[in-house]
């Protein structure tokens, strides 16, 4: 555990600048929107524009996943990493964890600054609604959405890590190899999900309206949907993703060379 934490600390320290830059950019963007709101833009439009950084986050995360590994190779620090007497999964897991922490910090900066800068307008327009619905409802659902995002982005990170590592196994056309691996791995994860779907049908469905406690806001929406979410195919896909994570860790430990 001590060794893993050392690796994680190193990966987080190395990502300090991207975290500061993206968090700062998010805060500046929200501050700019607040300024434009004061200048006459509608609150609805401002809220839509606020989500722009959210759409960039997955792309940034995939890019950052590739970059963290690429930097190790470019700066020859792979020698240090691959000489350590540790299993490959500790290296890939520490990078995976660091990236999810990065995502969490940037998301927190975005949401935090949005609440800070727009507390006044939100209170003005939605004050009665906010007073009627308990704060815990927002916190709970916000946390559930965050967990959902983490689960999705975790898979992205694993697939990109695999693509990068496989590209280092070939001597030429590494960019193409990475791209093809990413596409094939994505297809494989989906196919395995479909194939294994019948095996996990016994799992009880998740009732979305219960999970998110939609009854609390039913009186405001006049609509209480009943959505039973069957996730048997997703379980198969998660297992395939886990398998690909173990594969990339094994390749890193046993087949990757430092020489380019």
């Amino acid at each position: 555990m001590k060794r893993f934490l050392r690796l994680l600390g190193k990966d987080l320290e190395a990502s300090k600048l991207p975290i500061l830059f993206n968090s700062g950019l998010s805060i500046v963007w929200i501050a700019f929107l607040r300024y434009r709101y004061e200048a006459g833009w509608s609150l609805g439009m401002v809220f839509i524009l606020m989500t722009i950084p959210l759409t960039f986050l997955p792309i940034w995360l995939m890019w950052q996943t590739y970059q963290t590994l690429r930097t190790e190779w470019r700066e020859k620090t792979t020698y240090t990493l691959l000489l350590l007497p540790i299993p490959g999964w500790q290296i890939t897991l520490s990078k995976w964890t660091a990236l999810l922490i990065e995502f969490t910090i940037v998301l927190a900066a975005l949401v935090g600054s949005a609440l800070l800068f727009f507390l006044g307008p939100i209170n003005e327009y939605y004050g009665s609604f906010l007073q009627a619905v308990p704060l815990t409802w927002f916190l709970r659902n916000g946390f559930l959405l965050y967990l959902g995002a983490l689960a999705t982005f975790s898979s992205f990170i694993i697939l990109v890590q695999l693509a990068f590592i496989v590209s280092k196994l070939v001597g030429r056309f590494r960019g193409l190899a990475a791209l093809w691996t990413l596409l094939l791995a994505t297809w494989l994860v989906e196919r395995v999900g479909i194939i294994l779907d019948p095996l996990f049908r016994w799992l009880p469905p998740i009732h979305i309206e219960q999970l998110f406690r939609l009854d609390v806001i039913a009186q405001y929406t006049n609509y209480t949907p009943e959505i039973a979410y069957h996730y048997s195919a997703e379980v198969g896909s998660w297992l395939a993703t886990l398998g690909l994570f173990l594969l990339s860790s094994w390749l890193l430990e046993n087949w990757i060379e430092t020489d380019d």
């Binding site: 190395a14 700066e75 020859k76 620090t77 792979t78 020698y79 240090t80 000489l83 350590l84 007497p85």
Partner: peptide
């Protein structure tokens, strides 16, 4: 790897 200490020629430490 636990028994071997390797000092490569290239700079491999974190800048």
């Amino acid at each position: 790897k636990s028994a071997v200490a390797f000092v490569p020629e290239i700079d491999h430490l974190y800048n």
